[in-house]
Every structure is written in structure tokens, then in C-alpha cells.
Design a protein around this nucleic acid. Structure first.
Lengths: 204, 204
DNA sequence: TTGATTACTGATATTATTATCAGTAATATA
DNA sequence: TATATTACTGATAATAATATCAGTAATCAA
């Protein structure tokens, strides 16, 4: 991607800022006023360059018709995730960029298909799911035998390792002190709410 | 907050959608065209109601001057978190609003003070921290004795339960097969990187 | 040193957009 | 039953905003 001059960068940043702060992009006059340009043509020139370099899309004949190509732009920044730090060199500040291993993308769960369930009890302790943890569940009706999922039995949600055949479902706890639960599908109200795809724990 | 009629809700949703998809809010004409209204005044009426009910702010004399009051609106949706579902009634879809227990606010970690560390090894297995987990760490130099934190020993980061006195630090693993590590502060390069405040696991 | 690019001013035509007036009709509320 | 409120049409004035033309000047690369 072609680099921006500092003035172009400033204008780009201002547009971004307007979007985040106010919710809509500025007009050319507003940009001109902000930077002290007396003519909107100055801004027009800059915007055309930004468009040519691929940073924005300009909708012709449209008031405030600037789209930041960096997709959802303003939003994305927030959804960048928690930086993952790798090896840490002595003396350097922990957040030094050299140690960056990428980003822990928690926001992948931020859609309608995912929900969290607050785990109560220790029936899944051997699977590393503790009392008080949040399991992150992707809503789906089908689960492969042996996967950990959320089952709704008589209206109550439980997290278990699940196996299903034509006539019964077996819910396996992961705790030696608990026994598997057999559910007769002809008698009992049963359905799969989703598959456990993540776990989140708050540590104090 | 005063409820919206279905038509008002539709218009509100459309504005939101435009913001997320295109980056800028629609004009009254665009809204009218989308819903098949021949007059922009229809839209004007609706917008005024939305403003009156507090869902939007309208900047007078401003093209596309609609601000969704739900703060950064489009952005916030993503940062809202993963919905936490409580008890689940039989038959009802899992995402039914009645079951909502709040939101799991993962985004609280989205600031410069937090980073994630990919855990290698099973030395903390009895504390529920498994090989491959991500611990979320708040950067801080001080840690209270007995808390789980990240220590940098000779440039290498380790997650342990930490105790410090004037002359030495003791790093306690949480695994009966491992022994505590004693670090002489006068000899060894040692510092605290931060405190473990969360844990995240990806389950396949 | 010539030409291209960047960075502006200033003016103006054109069109995009808001705002407002004067109505109609259906539905809900008191 | 009277009175709001909701939900529209259709027209038009006023203004907000874009687009474009004709320039100037500085910087940078060929």
C-alpha cells in the first residue's frame, strides 16, 4: 500500500476520529475548517489522493460519502484483541513489539451464534472446566459423539461430553465421582444447544 | 426507554445497518427509497420521533446528521460482549431474551495494560491452567504474596504462584510432580511482569 | 531545467439534502 | 366521541455540500 504524506495522514486520521466520536464522516468544508484551509478544494485534492492510494472510497455526488477501506475501520481497532506476548527479553518492557506473538482474538465470539454459560458445579473438572467458569458456546443442533456441548434436559442446561444414538443420549461428566447420565430420547425432553468452543475464567 | 413501533424500529435498524456496512448514515431520501416512501417527510417524521424517544440525535441542517445515541453504536455492538444465558426454558430458542444473564465483557482486557501469554507446560495444572491456555495478564510490578502472576527470570517468562520477601522469590508450581523454584534476588535477574487476571482456552 | 506531484486560494455552478407547509387517513387513547 | 398519535403524499424553499475551473507556489525526481 502506497504511503501517505503527513498531511494526508492527518486528514485520514481526522475522518477516522469523526467516525468514532460523532458517528458520521465530516464534509469537505468541515475538514477544511478543522485544518484551517480556506478552500474546500484543498480537501478535495487530498481526498482524491487518499482514494487513489486506496485508503478511502469516495462516493461521487454524495454528502459525507467517504468510506474508509480499512473495512469497519473505527470498529476494528477495538476488536484487535489482546496482544499475545512471546519470549521476553531481560530489561525490555513487556509490551515491546519484538515480543508480539499476535493477538488473542476474543472478538471472534462476538456474533449472534455464540453465547456464554456460567458453569455451576464441578462435574467437568477433569476436562479443565471449573465451577464459576464461563464456557463459550456456538449455537448448533448437531454435535459429534464425544464432543463437549450444552444439552438442554427438561429445560435445564448442562455442560457435558455428549454421545447420542437413535434412542438415547449419554451425558458423560468429567469427574470420577460422578456417573454418566442416560437420557431416553422417547421419554425425556432433550435437545442440543451448542458446542463448547471456548472457556473463559476470571481470576482474582 | 420508550418503546419503538415496528416501523420506527425498522428505520432505526436500517440506519444502524448502513453505518456498519457502508460507514455512513443514510439520507432521508435514501431511507425513503429503501422503504418505498415517496416523500422524505415520512422519514423526517420518523426521525423526529426516534430523536424524541432518545434513540438518535439529529443535527439540524446537517447532511446525514444522524447519531445513534447508543454511544458508538455500530462499534459498541461488537464490544457488547458475549451474552450470558441463564436458565433455559424448554422449547424456547436459546437466545431468547428472558434467559439473558448479562454480557461476558471480554473487552475489558482490550487496553494497553493487558496482554496474553500462551502457556507452555503443565506446571500450573492444579490451578486449572493447562498447556496451551492463554492467561490474560495485567501489567503490574507489585504482586501480593500467594497470587498467580508472570515472573521474568533471566529473561524467560513463567506463570507461577509467587511469594516474595527481601532476599528471595519463590515460584510455586501447581502440580504435585514439580518443586517450587527459589530465586535469589541478589544473584538472579528477576522481575514481575504482571498479575494473571483471566484465562482463555480454545476448545476444538 | 523541465515536468510531475503536493499543497494550497478563491470563485461558482450544480446538485444533494434538509426543513417545512398543507394535506389525508388509519389507529390508538382518553 | 373527541383528540392525539402514527403514518403517510406531494410540493417547494432554503441551504448544505460536492464538483470543477483557473490559478499560485514549493518540492522533488528525471
Amino acid at each position: 500500500m502506497e504511503k501517505l504524506t503527513s498531511k494526508q495522514q492527518n486528514i485520514y486520521d481526522y475522518i477516522k476520529e469523526c467516525l468514532t466520536a460523532g458517528g458520521y464522516t465530516p464534509t469537505m468544508r468541515e475538514i477544511a475548517d478543522y485544518f484551517g484551509y480556506s478552500s474546500t478544494n484543498t480537501v478535495n485534492d487530498h481526498l482524491q489522493t487518499l482514494a487513489k492510494k486506496g485508503y478511502i472510497i469516495k462516493k461521487p455526488g454524495t454528502a459525507r460519502g467517504i468510506i474508509l477501506t480499512e473495512a469497519a475501520a473505527a470498529c476494528e481497532k477495538h476488536n484487535q484483541g489482546v496482544p499475545i506476548i512471546g519470549r521476553v527479553a531481560a530489561g525490555t518492557p513487556i509490551s515491546a513489539i519484538e515480543n508480539l506473538d499476535g493477538y488473542l482474538e476474543l472478538s471472534e465470539f462476538y456474533d449472534e451464534r455464540h453465547f456464554a454459560l456460567h458453569v455451576k458445579g464441578d462435574s467437568m473438572i477433569d476436562a479443565g472446566i471449573w465451577d464459576g467458569d464461563f464456557v463459550i458456546v456456538r449455537e448448533q443442533q448437531i454435535i459429534h459423539n464425544g464432543e463437549i456441548g450444552v444439552a438442554i434436559v427438561e429445560g435445564e442446561a448442562t455442560v457435558k461430553r455428549i454421545t447420542i444414538n437413535h434412542t438415547e443420549a449419554i451425558l458423560y461428566p468429567e469427574n470420577e465421582y460422578y456417573s454418566p447420565i442416560r437420557v431416553d430420547l422417547n421419554i425425556t425432553d432433550f435437545r442440543i444447544a451448542g458446542k463448547v468452543v471456548g472457556l473463559h475464567r476470571v481470576i482474582r
